[in-house]
C-alpha cells in the first residue's frame, strides 16, 4: 500500500472517530435535550489536559520508575521509553486517563448546568459557555504546572510498544473507532427510551414539561454530565492521537466545528450526525492535505484559511436553506410503537 494514502486514510478515520464522539455528545445535549452547549471545547480540552497530566505524572509511577521532570526532554524520553517497553503501563495509563477525563469533564458539565438555572435570556448561557472555554485555554496556557503552559507536553501513543509506526497508528485508529462505535450504540440506546422522550419534551416546551411533572433542573444536569463526560473521552483520544497536549488547540472554533457537524447532519438524528462528522472530517483533512501539497509546489500557506471560510459558509447555507439538516429527526423508538400498531 502506498504510504501517503495509508496515512491519509488512518488520519481521516481517526479524526472521524473523535469528531463522531464529540458531535454525538452535542447531539445528545442540543439535538435531544435542547441545551445549547456553546462551550463544547472546554470539556474536550479538559479531557486532553487530563490525558496530559496523567501521562506525564502517573505513567512513571505505574511503571515503577522514579519520575523525572515531566516537561524536560529527559522526562519526555522517559515516557517514550516506558511506552516502548511496557505495554501494561502504557495501556493502563491510557485507561486511567479515559476514566478520569470522563469523571472530571462530567463534573465540570454539572457545574456549568447550575448557572443555567439563573439565566433568563436564552443566549446568555451560550455566551458564558463560549467564554468559559476560551478562559480555560488562557489559564492553562499561562499556568505551566498543568501541561507546561503554551509549550504543551508530549505524550506518546499507548501502542508505541508495537514498534512499527504504521502499526501503532493503525492500532490506535482501531481503538478510536471501537470507542466511537461504543458511544454510538450507547447513545442510540439511551435516547430511544423514556429518557429520550424526557429530553425532547424539555427541548420542545420547558413550561409544558415542568407542568407535566418533569424536574428540568435535574434533567439538565444529567444531560450536561453525560455530554461533557463523552466530550472528555474525545479529548483524551485526541491528545494521544496528536501525541501532544497543546492548550492552543482548543480555540472556540473547535466548538463551532462540532455544531456544524450536528446541524449539517441532522439535529436529533444520530446517524445524520455521523454523516455530518464525516463531511466535516473530509473538509478538515482535505484542506489540510491540499494546503500542504500546494505549499510544496509553491502555493501560499494561507490556503489553510479557506477551510474556515468553507465551514462558515456551509453553516450559513444549512441554516438558511435546510434547517433540519440532511437526515430528518425520527420518533423515539420504543416498544410502544409495536403495541399501538398491533391494536
Amino acid at each position: 500500500m502506498p504510504d501517503p494514502i495509508f496515512s491519509a486514510a488512518v488520519s481521516f478515520l481517526s479524526y472521524f472517530g473523535i469528531f463522531s464522539i464529540l458531535s454525538l455528545s452535542l447531539n445528545l445535549e442540543y439535538g435531544f435535550g435542547g441545551q445549547p452547549n456553546f462551550g463544547k471545547v472546554a470539556f474536550y480540552a479538559t479531557g486532553a489536559f487530563v490525558a496530559g497530566v496523567v501521562a506525564s505524572r502517573l505513567m512513571p509511577l505505574i511503571a515503577g520508575i522514579a519520575p523525572l521532570d515531566p516537561f524536560s526532554p529527559e522526562g519526555t524520553m522517559q515516557r517514550v521509553a516506558i511506552t516502548q517497553s511496557n505495554p501494561y503501563a502504557a495501556l493502563l495509563t491510557f485507561l486511567i486517563a479515559l476514566l478520569l477525563a470522563a469523571l472530571i469533564s462530567g463534573a465540570f458539565g454539572y457545574l456549568v448546568s447550575y448557572p443555567a438555572i439563573r439565566i433568563r435570556e436564552e443566549w446568555f448561557l451560550a455566551m458564558v459557555l463560549l467564554v468559559t472555554g476560551e478562559i480555560l485555554r488562557v489559564v492553562v496556557r499561562s499556568y505551566p504546572p498543568i501541561v507546561n503552559g503554551y509549550n504543551g507536553v508530549l505524550i506518546p501513543n499507548p501502542f508505541r510498544w508495537l514498534g512499527d509506526a504504521d502499526q501503532v497508528s493503525l492500532a490506535y485508529m482501531v481503538l478510536i473507532l471501537v470507542i466511537a462505535l461504543g458511544v454510538y450504540i450507547y447513545i442510540n440506546k439511551l435516547v430511544n427510551s423514556p429518557f429520550g422522550r424526557l429530553l425532547k419534551s424539555m427541548r420542545d416546551d420547558q413550561i409544558a414539561a415542568t407542568s407535566l411533572g418533569k424536574d428540568l433542573v435535574k434533567v439538565r444536569g444529567q444531560v450536561l454530565i453525560l455530554g461533557s463526560a463523552l466530550a472528555g473521552l474525545a479529548g483524551v483520544l485526541y491528545a494521544y492521537y496528536s501525541g501532544y497536549v497543546n492548550p492552543d488547540d482548543f480555540i472556540p472554533i473547535r466548538t463551532f466545528d462540532v455544531w456544524v457537524m450536528v446541524v449539517l447532519g441532522g439535529i436529533a438524528n444520530n446517524r445524520g450526525v455521523l454523516l455530518g462528522a464525516a463531511i466535516m472530517t473530509a473538509i478538515d483533512r482535505g484542506t489540510q492535505i491540499l494546503a500542504i501539497q500546494l505549499q510544496t509546489f509553491g502555493g501560499i500557506a494561507e490556503l489553510n484559511y479557506l477551510r474556515y471560510i468553507i465551514v462558515g459558509i456551509l453553516m450559513l447555507a444549512i441554516l438558511m436553506f435546510r434547517q433540519k439538516g440532511i437526515l430528518p429527526e425520527k420518533p423515539v423508538k420504543t416498544p410502544a410503537y409495536e403495541v399501538v400498531k398491533v391494536e
Binding site: 442540543y30 443566549w123 451560550a126 471560510i309 462558515g312 459558509i313 453553516m315
Partner: peptide, 16 residues
C-alpha cells in the same frame, strides 16, 4: 440559537 450560530458563522467567514 440559530441566529447565534449564524452570527458566529458570519463572523468566522469575514474574519478569515
Amino acid at each position: 440559537y440559530t441566529l447565534v450560530l449564524a452570527s458566529f458563522a458570519l463572523g468566522l467567514v469575514l474574519r478569515y
